[in-house]
Each structure stands twice: as C-alpha cells, then as structure tokens.
Simulated scan of single mutants.
Amino acid sequence: MPNPVYDVARTGLLLVDPYNDFLSEGGKLFPMLRDVATDVRLLDNLRATVDAARKADIQVVYVPHRRWQPGDYDNWDHPNPTQRLVQQHHTFAEGTWGGEWHPDFVPQEGDIIVQEHWAQSGFANTNLDFQLKQHGITHVIVIGLLANTCIESTSRFAMELGYHVTLVRDATAAFTQEMMRAAHELNGPTFAHEILTTAELIAALPVGI
C-alpha cells in the first residue's frame, strides 16, 4: 500500500481510550500491556502521531470507552466477557485517576470528544459517525488501544460505513504479540486500506515533524 495521500480537511485522527488505566504505570491494565507497549515504543509513537496530526491541522477525535460507574452492567441480559471484567475490576472508573486521560493526551481546544462506547466499536451506540460526517471527514487514522479489540472493531465499522481506514501498527498495543500479529497481519488486511508505521504515516502527512 505505497504512498498514501491524506487531505487534511477530510482526515480525522481517532484516538481510542487514552486512559491512565491503559497507558500509565499504576494503571489497572498497564501491566498486561507493558511488554508489547515497550517493544513497539507505544507512548513515543502515540505522542509523535498526535503531534504530527495537530501540526498538519488534522481533526483529533477522542473515542473513549465507557468509564465504569456503579450499576453498570447490573441486570444486563448478556454482558460480554470484557464487560464482566470491567464490572469486577472497575476499569476506567469515572472520577478516578485510572479513568482520566493520560497526561500526554489531554484534549485540546478544537478536539472532538465523542460519546463513550460500551463495548469495542467506537461507532456502536455513539455519535462518532455523525460527528465525522458533520466535519466532512472521509479518512480515519485509528490509534490507541487495544489493537485487537477496540481498534479493530472501530476500524472495521468505519470501513463498513464507507470511510478510508488507516491502522498504525506501532501506535497501538495488545496483551500479547500473537494478538498484535492477528490485528495487523491476519485481520487488518481484510478491512484496512493502509497499515503503516508511525514513521510512514508522518512522512505521508502534508506537515511532518
């Protein structure tokens, strides 16, 4: 997939779940991600991608997971296994440090924060599609966590809705290398129009760093 071209007026950077529980030492899920995140230099690449997008005047869109609140998933007919774990461990709990943005990824003026997703797709039961269409966005670059769950589900849904989808293989992470391989080598090529490294993406943007 050589030489992708991005019209900054029609491109959005989707930053998925940049919470302390995922990205910070002391976060509830960070120990499970640490090895893969270190291997791909996740934080450095997230910072570089977000910074390059801002410099290129690309719309940054926050795509946050539901922040757990008391009563979530209680009396549901069929919460999924991940939701059961969130219910048990109170991951991304509202009003806690773990449910706050990582300090390097605090929203800035002009960013869009869409409604929180309850499961894995950032589109399902949220206003993400509406916001993207209202801002004339046709191309989405999807980064954040996790590669094989929310990134994949959001990206697949985007493709189904007619968006051009770019995955950035080292600006995401998963709990195992096998999950990363599934996300980028097995599943990603079935729906993503581009699968790039951070360096390749930045080189393709009109304004690099």
Rank of each mutant, 00 (worst) to 15 (best):
L186Q: 14
E194H: 14
R10M: 00
F22E: 09
A119P: 03
I202H: 03
T166M: 02
Q87R: 14
K133P: 01
G95Y: 04
F22P: 05
A52Q: 06
G136E: 02
D35T: 14
R10F: 00
Q88D: 12
G188V: 03
R169I: 01
R181V: 12
H139N: 05
V106F: 13
E94Y: 12
A183W: 01
V165L: 02
A147K: 01
E109I: 10
K28F: 05
D77K: 15
R41T: 11
L14G: 03
T190E: 13
P81C: 10
R169V: 01
H90N: 08
L46T: 06
I113Y: 07
E200M: 11
A182K: 06
D7N: 04
V168R: 02
T126Y: 05
T149S: 13
P2G: 13
W101R: 14
D51G: 12
G26K: 06
L33Y: 10
N3H: 10
V60M: 03
G26Y: 05
P70A: 04
F105C: 08
R169T: 03
D35R: 15
T38K: 13
D17I: 09
L43D: 08
E109T: 14
A56R: 03
P64C: 13
H102G: 12
T197C: 06
L46K: 04
V106M: 15
I151G: 04
R181F: 06
D51A: 15
G95R: 08
T149F: 11
I58H: 01
R41P: 08
I195C: 09
F175L: 12
A182F: 10
T190F: 13
N3W: 05
A52H: 04
T38F: 12
V168I: 08
D7I: 01
T149R: 03
N45Y: 09
A124H: 15
R181A: 12
D44E: 14
M180T: 03
M1W: 04
S153Y: 09
Q177T: 08
Q134C: 08
R84K: 13
I209V: 15
R181W: 08
F30E: 15
G71H: 06
L15E: 01
I137A: 02
N3A: 11
L43Q: 10
H184S: 04
M179G: 12
Q177L: 14
T11D: 00
E152T: 08
D111W: 10
I143L: 02
D104I: 07
W68R: 08
V61D: 05
H90Q: 15
D170E: 05
W101D: 14
L196T: 05
K55H: 14
L46M: 12
L13R: 00
T11H: 00
T198E: 06
I58E: 01
L42C: 09
A53K: 01
